[in-house]
Write a protein that binds this DNA or RNA. Structure first.
Lengths: 294, 294
DNA sequence: CTTTTTTTGGACTATGAGTATAAAATATTC
DNA sequence: GAATATTTTATACTCATAGTCCAAAAAAAG
């Protein structure tokens, strides 16, 4: 990565940690980074883009570190799961991202909301699968529910007015939660008492590798089925995406800038759920491609 | 309450629901309320004060509705607890406060943060006590832990990306959570496996350190400064409270029944904000004393 | 009817995001 | 090493919005 860009990111991170996202101005950042305004806006089209980059880095760091300690053999070891969960807390804490998340979770910025949403869905799916690893195949129907509950409990214990009052480590905290989850997950399995959530997330977890053909097919089906209820803009966007995806060398940059508009278009509509799944996969595909490029 | 003030609050609420807190400008509000800027700033010293008033109303509404369905006899009925928890979700949903909370939780504004903090602590304490009502005295050491966990699970299931995918009612959702809590709370009691216990409780009171002298002084100053605008009843009430607080053994029960009248007396008046702070501290003091008694 | 309080409208300040641009510095290419 | 392209800088500018100020008008109180 470019020196200037890195400078800016590092400065921004320092300042966000120190003063918070909202009260750090772009001027603060460029001053700290010893860079001019033009340069900042050369690399980031807005302050939000800057925070997005930071969050993305944290996400990637988490994924990588989690993978590092994960093997075929230890997949069912609850201590490994503990460590993996703990990693996210540690990474987030290091970059002081908890308050940040709270402050942007319902931002108007589509890009930001989208990122967080993807992040969240990914986390639930991942945890759901890991719970099945640890607690056995028979828990698969309730695993997503339990993942959501576990995340809720963990987050709550991270709450600024709770957390500081305890001196326990992340590991201890998570072990405590996982003891609760263990009880709950078996109870739910036994009594077949679950809520819901599988339907929403399940599909995604089935195939972890998203193929271009799969996405195209999903999107096309979606398009043909629901076309009538789309706005002209949405139709334009989807047609463009389909066209681009079918090309030999899709212009990733363009796609990345169109997809958020799609998210936006379906936010709050009847089709939100359905579209989210597809858009999620689209993102996954773009991610893969982008990583291939770099 | 004053017509203008009510107009403003109602307009603000409509707009916050429609467009969100951040993207509703003060100009939007005064336009919607058909009121001038001066008037707005006559009643609220800032946009934040305005949202504080809305949150306060919601809190009060919740407390009142919860009390309405609570009796000595049904205290241990889990369905009553379900309904009470459900009330908050309903009230918040009606006023669209969930996203609002998220967006202000780490606001720089001290007043706002404080309000939410107090709200939160109150909720945990309340739920903790109700859990003991329902699940028995023997769970008292783990009740606060469980209250936190329950709140975390409930909040997570309210998450915008989870909730819409389910068609279940608040009641069903909470019943589900309470079934989990039931298992957990007994397990934790039996194995003596808890996290924060009541340390949370104690730290909170230490930290805020409301002393009797402090409250008396605040109230007295307030009284002397604003006396002239008080109604005779208010004067009676405040004088009584001051007198009672100065006694060696204040009659807590009496005080607890007078204080709400004070809250009421200032609702909608110019002095509401000022009085609220003092009344909060008064409550905190009474809370402390009540705990000491038990 | 007189005085006090509330309300109005509009001008004004301050802050901070983002744009625009011309000149300077740096890198790339031939 | 000169010509060209790019990145960076500095600075001035626009725009949106929270919040202030104030004098005149309207409403309420006495």
């Amino acid at each position: 990565m470019n020196t200037k860009k890195r400078n800016i990111l590092e400065a921004a991170q320092r300042l966000f940690i120190e003063k918070g996202f909202r009260s750090t101005t772009v001027n603060d950042i460029i001053e700290e980074a010893k860079v001019s305004k033009g340069t900042f806006y050369n690399y980031f089209s807005s302050k939000n883009e800057c925070i997005i980059a930071i969050l993305e880095n944290a996400r990637k760091e988490t994924v990588i570190k989690r993978k590092e300690i994960h093997t075929q053999q230890n997949a069912s070891d609850v201590h490994i799961l503990t460590k993996q969960l703990s990693i996210r807390l540690t990474v987030y804490e290091e970059h002081n991202l908890f308050p940040l998340f709270a402050s942007i979770i319902n931002s108007q910025d589509v890009g930001l909301r989208d990122l967080i949403k993807r992040n969240y869905i990914e986390e639930i799916n991942w945890l759901s699968n890991r719970l099945i690893d640890v607690f056995g195949e028979q828990t698969k129907n309730v695993a997503t529910d339990c993942a959501v509950l576990a995340l809720g409990m963990i987050q709550q214990l991270q709450h600024p007015w709770i957390n500081p009052s305890t001196n326990i480590s992340f590991d201890q905290l998570i072990e405590f939660i996982l003891r609760r989850i263990k009880t709950i997950i078996y109870e739910m399995t036994a009594t077949n008492d679950s809520l819901l959530i599988n339907s929403f997330f399940k599909q995604k977890t089935e195939e972890s590798s998203v193929t271009r053909e799969h996405v195209i097919e999903l999107l096309k089906t979606f398009y043909l089925e629901e076309k009538d209820s789309f706005s002209p803009n949405t139709i334009q966007a989807i047609e463009f995406v389909l066209e681009e995806l079918s090309k030999e060398l899709p212009r990733i940059f363009l796609l990345e800038n169109i997809v958020p508009a799609l998210t936006e278009a379906f936010t709050g509509s009847q089709l939100e759920q359905k579209s989210t799944i597809i858009i999620y996969k689209l993102w996954a595909l773009l991610d893969e491609w982008r990583e291939g490029q770099e």
